[in-house]
Amino acid sequence: MSAAREAVLGRVRSALADVTPTPEPVVPPITSALSAAPEGHVLDVFVERVEDYKAVVEQVDAEGLAAHLATLFEPGQRVVVPAGLPAELAAAVPVAVTEDDGPLTAAELDAVDAVVTLAAVGVAETGTIVLDHSAGQGRRALSLVPDRHVCVVRADQVVADVPEAVARLAGAVSAGAPLTWISGPSATSDIELDRVEGVHGPRTLHVLLVAADTVGPVS
């Protein structure tokens, strides 16, 4: 198809014969007042906005995190724990399902009850958590197929707005990592613009917000 390539690029060049490109990247404005707000307020807004999208948010002490995690599941529930999740968290779920012996098939993932992951960034203005799928976050399918996603976000991972999130994630993207931006559980407004939470992605999103610098992935 190199003929098509040359044809398309040729047409583009001749269409733009009158145009001089701008080499400098656009620097977008900061639009959220949160960018100048104290950290405590940013966290409050993060909690409020994540809840706004019908997700469950709880603020937990780092010491009590594993014990609290254990209370979120019914006995016998099978929970996927991605590689790199701290051992005390992996130990807190009723039945841990791992990929130590090779990747789970989509059907196997469909048969588990929940998944626990860490996150890369939280965005207060939009109530978003972002996974870069590094250690402790699992490959993309793990946080997609199970019906319930429990996500542990550290306070120091929460930024005010999208510009800061993009800046923090640039390194991961340059290194080739995929990103998943999650704002609440899956949803649709396709029928009469009536918002329904819970379609194909996890129907329940449970965010645990813990104090800074205490929970990290293990290698």
Binding site: R49, P103, V173, A177, P178, L179, T180, W181, P185, S186
Partner: peptide, 15 residues
């Protein structure tokens, strides 16, 4: 403020 899911990927991610 943000749609529920935004996915980004760069070619093939091993595994």
């Amino acid at each position: 403020r943000m749609n529920p899911y935004t996915s980004t990927w760069s070619g093939v991610t091993p595994g």
